[in-house]
């Protein structure tokens, strides 16, 4: 049993799970925004990065991890709401490439502004738990207290989001506003407010994700920390289907594990190529995602 737990495939699965939940969270934030506003938020990663800087670069010397995390989440939520109220609101009903372009531009602004304020030098974040792997009879298991904390946090976030959407008044309104805005208005749902709330929730999730990513010893926090993570999160969301939160979660974890095997047995440079290949193949076979039930298209 111990030999099994410390074996190479199990190490890959555990390591992949730790990365995969991050992709799942990024994918989840993308899906939240896509479902409500039909916008693919290319600035998602950069917004999350900025929130993490607000939490950790401004407060780091004076406070502890948990307060900084809280500040980052609040900053993410505020930034999400502001973005929706200002840039995004001006683009509803415009050709679908306009918001894509705008969010790409916003990504550039956010990354440049962060680099102008905090420089491009990587900043390491404090970690609340040990990053040293647990040992089993002298051999490491590919899971540290910190990695476990990452997985648990991701699961908690997902459960909270699911409960909010499925069982609360605001969740009901969020879903209704996304599915049929006009009918929702006729029933008294303040649709514009719901769109803002959707962006706030997604950015809050993004902020938590960025803090988890930046806590990784090897990357740290830089203005471009989230670029690669965002690409993988997008691939997970696209494969799972931008309309499907469950698809986003499952394909995020699946990709994380698959990448770990590719990196371990092939070459770490091959990971992004395999990802691109998987994305292309899956989009060729199921253009609307593996987990989306029916092909729908609004003419």
């Amino acid at each position: 049993m111990d030999a099994f737990l410390t074996s190479r495939p199990v190490a890959d699965i555990l390591g992949g799970l730790t990365n995969g939940v991050i992709y799942s969270l990024v994918a989840l934030s993308l899906v939240l925004i896509w479902r409500s506003t039909r916008i693919l938020n290319f600035a998602q990663g950069a917004m999350a990065m900025l929130a993490a800087y607000v939490g950790f670069a401004i407060l780091a010397p004076t406070t502890n991890y948990w307060i900084s995390m809280g500040v980052a989440v609040v900053a993410g939520i505020v930034l999400g709401g502001l973005t929706e109220r200002t840039i995004v609101r001006a683009l509803y009903g415009k050709p679908e490439i306009n918001p894509v372009v705008a969010m790409v531009g916003f990504l550039l602004v956010l990354e440049s502004v962060a680099a102008a304020i905090w420089s491009t030098v990587s900043r390491s974040l404090p970690t609340p738990f040990s990053i040293v792997d647990w040992q089993l009879r002298g051999r490491p298991v590919a899971m540290s207290p910190f990695a476990l904390y990452e997985v648990v946090t991701a699961v908690v976030v997902m459960v909270v989001i699911a409960v909010v959407f499925q069982f609360t008044r605001v969740g009901l309104q969020l879903r209704a506003a996304a599915l049929n805005p006009e009918v929702s208005r006729l029933l008294g749902v303040r649709v514009h407010r719901m769109l803002t709330v959707g962006w706030m929730l997604a950015s809050g999730v993004g902020a938590i994700t960025a803090v988890l990513v930046a806590s990784n010893y090897f990357t740290g926090l830089t203005p471009t920390t989230m670029d690669g993570v965002f690409a993988f999160g997008f691939i997970a969301a696209a494969i799972g289907g931008l309309d499907s939160p469950v698809g986003a979660l499952v394909s995020g974890v699946a990709l994380g594990i698959a990448f770990q095997f590719v990196g371990d047995y092939l070459n770490s440079n091959a990971i992004i190529l395999v990802a691109l290949g998987l994305l292309i193949v899956s989009l060729m076979v199921r253009p609307n995602g593996v987990f989306t039930r029916r092909a729908q298209r609004r003419v």
Partner: peptide, 25 residues
């Protein structure tokens, strides 16, 4: 040929990110 708007933008973004890795390989 089968993708619309944002999906295609995302796929080309993945290609842009992958290009550096191809050069390395």
């Amino acid at each position: 040929t089968r993708l619309r708007g944002p999906y295609l933008a995302g796929m080309t973004l993945a290609f842009a990110v992958a290009f550096g890795a191809v050069l390395n390989v």
